[in-house]
Design a protein around this nucleic acid. Structure first.
Lengths: 332, 332
DNA sequence: AAAAGCAATGTAACCGGTTACATTAAGGTT
DNA sequence: AACCTTAATGTAACCGGTTACATTGCTTTT
């Protein structure tokens, strides 16, 4: 393999001069620079980035911890991450953690073993919290999308409470009083905030909370399907269902129609995320649009700022309620 | 940062002994090994993997070139890749190339600059074909899913022609004679093979090929939506449509219903891939199930075998026709 | 003309592991 | 007791860049 010494020999200069000619062209004479560049070309020289990284102790890689790449919302976030990282010369080591905390911790340790410079965490879990990491060490991390309450790092999030409130208010404005909710995983702050927003809207409208209308889920279509089954079976079934993800909403709609009920005539359905399929469902899905790609881009921008020693501030991203045909006035 | 020398000092041995105690425990005495391990623990020592990699000239990273991560079929393939890579101690550098060839070539060059050991290419394009790479150099690569005809590397693929033929035969068996096809990108071998399979079935049944029934697409729901529009507008519209991806099938179904037509009563729709949503559409989608995760796992297994100097053979993966409610007997 | 300043380049230490080779000590053989 | 073998450990070169410091030669200053 051609290395810097070969090039130096070919150009008749020292290795230091070659290095300088490539990295700080302005401090070598034009004549020498020419010679070096010609030698580089002739030898087909490409710097061994492993050596560069080793020397500079920077990998220019970022670890992204994603709960599941199969969720199309995260796919969009990752696209944004990828794009922003590439623009700034960073690579992305993607880690599909499947919600497995041990795996998250393991992947996060890529930073402490110098395989990556920092971490973007898309889930409310601090992979550095166990004792595998030196307590004082500042491990560059950004927590985005699902954010810890006491995040030990900068965060990028949505005002989930306000967004959930807005969806619920939309349903109430359509005359619905029995509104089911298909939630996310139990211990997620995201789920808690969205439920708070749901409750905010209910109490503002003077509607009592009925615990039976709350179903747990895990953001997958299957979970939505099963939760809808439960809700439909209630003696007083809801006339509207708010799902914490579009994927669950799709599953729920499937189950509702299977029962011979109609969306939105019998039951209105609202989702969250605005995934690509949301406008192709039958009927098209009312949902909260999140700027998924922007989440990714902003998280990366912040992480790189941290790595470069700049100060960063927490970010709250905007959302929009998209009213489509899956929600309609209550028929009762 | 604690390095191997600190540990050596702490344990009262040489750095070589520390290295050996960790990498080949059997060649140091039990007593010394104990001392070293205790020192490692005490110092909180973790080897600097950048140094290890630099020394061994192996990164234990694989580059994965994926056309678009937003397609849920690829999301499944990537899950498989991730899993297999992790099991064998490799990291995955995911590159969302968006079909941009310059970007593919750029990412592939991570291998020549020693940022990664090999490439898994999920698209029919040889990123090493331009002159940016030394001609003779053996750049470890596996081509999976969409495979080049003259791939310069081992491949993992489906018998797309046979699968497409099987779907088409299924439609013909239901009595359909005018069968539309929503295709993939023009120059893709995948699209060509699937069209050949479609034609095989037609000619076996004595049905003439009608070019107007062939619409180009790009695997997105929007493309399916638009292509369906074209097909519906034909004076003699098809009674069945075979889509080269489930995502396009979902878009097509949406457009068909928008026209007041019913699936499958007026038009049967079949897809390809069996993405997670395929069983939650209304009606559930008849499709070809591909072992997406297995594609990823096999590709990684093959790539690592190549990296380890073993011989590998091309692989053809199995498929299954899943008959669901979106296809029904022809009503004409 | 001697001193000082500066631009251009060379020399070699350094990053943190791995490993070929050298050295030492202990045990076994004749 | 002299010699050989083997296990255990130490020494130092090495991977391929980067960069602090040294050196050279030329120009400017007084």
């Amino acid at each position: 393999m051609t290395n810097i010494r070969k090039v130096a020999e070919l150009a008749g200069v020292s290795v230091a001069t070659v290095s300088r000619a490539l990295k700080s062209p302005d401090i070598v004479s034009p004549v020498t620079r020419e010679k070096v560049l010609k030698a580089v070309d002739q030898a087909g020289y490409k710097p061994n980035l492993m050596a560069v990284q080793f020397r500079s102790q920077r990998t220019y890689n970022l670890v992204v911890l994603v709960p599941t790449i199969a969720n199309t919302f995260f796919a969009r976030v990752i696209s944004g991450i990828q794009e922003a990282a590439q623009e700034r010369g960073y690579g992305v080591l993607l880690c599909n953690t499947l919600g497995n905390e041990a795996m998250e911790t393991q992947y996060a340790s890529l930073v402490s073993t110098r395989q990556a410079d920092g971490v973007v965490q898309l889930r409310a879990f601090n992979p550095f919290s166990d004792n595998a990491f030196p307590a004082g060490a500042a491990l560059p991390m950004i927590n985005a999308c699902e954010v810890l309450d006491d995040a030990p790092c900068p965060t990028v999030k949505l005002d989930n409470r306000a967004a959930a409130r807005e969806v619920t208010e939309h349903l109430i404005a359509l005359g619905h009083r029995r509104i089911g909710m298909i939630k996310g995983p139990r211990r997620s702050p995201l789920t808690r905030d969205r439920q708070l927003g749901y409750q905010d809207a209910l109490s503002a409208a003077g509607i009592a909370l009925d615990e039976r209308l709350l179903c747990p889920g895990d953001f997958t279509p299957l979970a939505g399907y099963q939760a809808a089954e439960t809700l439909i079976a209630l003696t007083e079934r809801p006339t509207a269902i708010f799902c914490e993800s579009d994927e669950m909403a799709i599953g729920a709609m499937s189950r509702i129609k299977e029962s011979g009920l109609s969306v939105p005539k019998d039951i209105s359905v609202a989702g969250f995320d605005d995934i690509a399929f949301a406008s192709y469902t039958d009927p098209p899905l009312t949902t909260i649009a999140q700027p998924a790609e922007a989440f990714g881009r902003e998280a990366v921008a912040m992480l790189i700022d941290v790595l470069e020693g700049q100060k960063v501030e927490n970010l709250v991203m905007p959302y929009t309620l998209l009213t489509r045909a899956s929600t309609a006035p209550c028929q009762l």
